[in-house]
Design a binder for these strands. Structure first.
Length: 460
RNA sequence: GCCGAGGUAGCAAAGUGGCUAUGCGUCAGACUGCAGAUCUGAUGACGGGGGUUCAAAUCCCUCCCUCGGCUCCA
């Protein structure tokens, strides 16, 4: 069985065959000029699940994610705040990483910054000028789009179509309106570096071509990002990189669908964005994670609290099964058909994920396992339970949803003490008081479940 | 205007010619002192119209609607 991935370039699902066992993946990272929002989280969770699945499949993954710390928005922000743009970028980048850590998003292998690669960028641009793909004009350097014959192959548009979009800015320095900047001349008071063309800074796009190929070689196996970046950003990356290397830049282009709120794209310019930080105040990180991971990565999704509530209840269900499994392992039985289910679920899970990382379908398989655990764990044999536990954890880890917050030792002891005392009351049939205790505990997020033995858990 | 994605039950969301998707919700039953959890069952769907076919959510035509890109964006 091989994995199939939908390649934006061919608009088809293709067999995924990396250069070797080490998959080289580049995911477009942040321009950190503000707090990370849920749209960012959607994309990074999506690629995190993809990476985790590749690892599950036995690949080693080398993952590069850029940090665009030199960019127009940051410069604008630095003027507003009267601060160094690199410091602003550093602050928001570190902050975003903390948010992403809580969402259990694995860190990339490396996070190269534009400001650390100015020399590489200058060399790259110089070479493009030498090769006749770029030209200097009044302290700026532009890529001459017409020189690159394949321009438009990713977004499947001709140069003519792009121009007729009529929103291409006319700039007298450019030979053609579709040309884009590789190097921008610095204005008074702006951050700059010296270059053969004077004081200035890199344009947007070029950093990704330079840093991705520097750390991953050419071609990259996977280049990922949100679909909104396909044009012009990724189109321009292809032009620069293939002009430079004279060979294919990326083998598989993977794009995530955008997140909308009330039907509109979540973006800073619309002011409708929800920061990860704010949402984390209200919801358990694993709830947010499950919500995001359950979206098929290529799909758009409309955010609502209702969806999060639904994810919360689903996650409760998953965690309940986990507890059930652990309980059953303390006192295994000698039978049940759990083993058959495990085999079937594993197959279904893998088939779903192999088919372009179809997480909704893969989750359906997971719920099959959850149901069967609830149904038959009590009578299952130890070996069956261990098999089930292994699969339960393997799948849960691909989704990245099993990072439960640790209970404090003291907390644990105190609650158990209350439960024991309440048990005494129940034996005396003082249900009024024991119900009151249960209700009060629930108010502070501790859920008691009376069965043969009373158990407790924290609500999500 | 051009390019792309989509419209599936109360909500979310797979499926893409014949086989119960799934989760949340709601209702009922079992279990329980009750509640919860869990199980069992029920509930209910393929945007409108036309066509192809023994058979269409799935293929074709047509119309309507939504979202994304074409401008900074994950």
């Amino acid at each position: 069985m091989t994995i199939k991935v939908y390649n934006t370039l061919s608009r088809k699902k293709e067999e995924f065959i990396p250069r070797d066992k080490k998959v080289r993946i580049y995911v477009c990272g942040l321009t950190p000029y503000d707090y990370a929002h849920l749209g960012h989280a959607k994309t990074y969770v999506a690629f995190d699940v993809i990476i985790r699945y590749l690892e599950y499949r036995g690949y080693e993954v080398f993952h590069v994610q850029n940090v665009t710390d030199v960019e127009d928005k940051l410069i604008k922000r630095s003027k507003e705040l009267q601060k160094n743009p690199l410091e602003i970028a550093d602050f928001f980048f570190k902050d975003a990483l903390k948010d992403f850590d809580r969402l259990n998003i694995k860190r990339a292998s490396i996070y190269p910054k534009v400001s650390d690669h100015i020399e590489d960028i200058i060399n790259f641009i110089s070479r493009l000028i030498e090769k006749g793909y770029a030209y200097e004009s009044n302290g700026n350097v532009y890529f001459e789009v017409k020189k690159f014959k394949d321009y438009g192959k990713l977004s499947h548009q001709s140069i003519k179509d792009i121009i007729s979009g009529a929103r291409v800015s006319i700039d007298e320095n450019k030979r053609d309106p579709v040309d884009f900047a590789l190097w921008k001349k610095a204005k008074e008071g702006e951050i700059f570096w010296d270059s053969p063309w004077g004081k200035g800074r890199p344009g947007w796009h070029i950093e990704c071509s330079v840093m991705s190929t520097k750390y991953l070689g050419v071609p990259l196996d996977i280049h990922g990002g949100a679909i909104e970046l396909a044009f012009p950003h990724h189109e321009n990356e292809i032009a620069q990189s293939e002009a430079y290397y004279d060979k294919k830049f990326v083998r598989y282009w993977l794009h995530t669908g955008v997140l909308t709120v009330n039907g509109e794209k979540m973006s800073k310019s619309l002011g409708n964005f929800i920061t990860v930080k704010d949402l984390l105040k209200k919801y358990n990180p694993m709830v947010i994670r499950l919500y995001l991971a359950s979206i098929y990565y290529r799909s758009r999704a409309d955010f609502s609290e209702e969806n999060l509530e639904s994810a919360k209840n689903s996650l409760e269900r998953i965690y309940n099964a986990k507890r059930k499994l652990d309980e059953a392992l303390k006192n295994p039985g000698d039978g049940s058909s759990l083993g058959d289910t495990v085999k079937r679920v594993k197959e279904n899970f893998e088939a779903a994920m192999d088919d372009d990382f179809n997480t909704p379908k893969a989750l359906a398989a997971y719920y099959d396992l959850v149901k069967e655990i609830n149904r038959s764990a009590d009578s299952a044999s130890e070996s069956q339970l261990l098999e089930a536990k292994k699969l339960f954890e393997d799948i849960g880890n691909v989704f990245g949803i099993l990072m439960e917050e640790k209970k404090g030792d003291l907390e644990e002891k105190l609650i158990q003490l209350i439960v024991d005392i309440r048990d005494e009351l129940r034996k005396r049939k003082d249900f009024e008081m024991s119900d009151k205790i249960r209700a009060k505990l629930r108010e502070i997020g501790i859920v008691l479940e009376d069965g043969e033995k009373t158990t407790w858990k924290k609500s999500l």
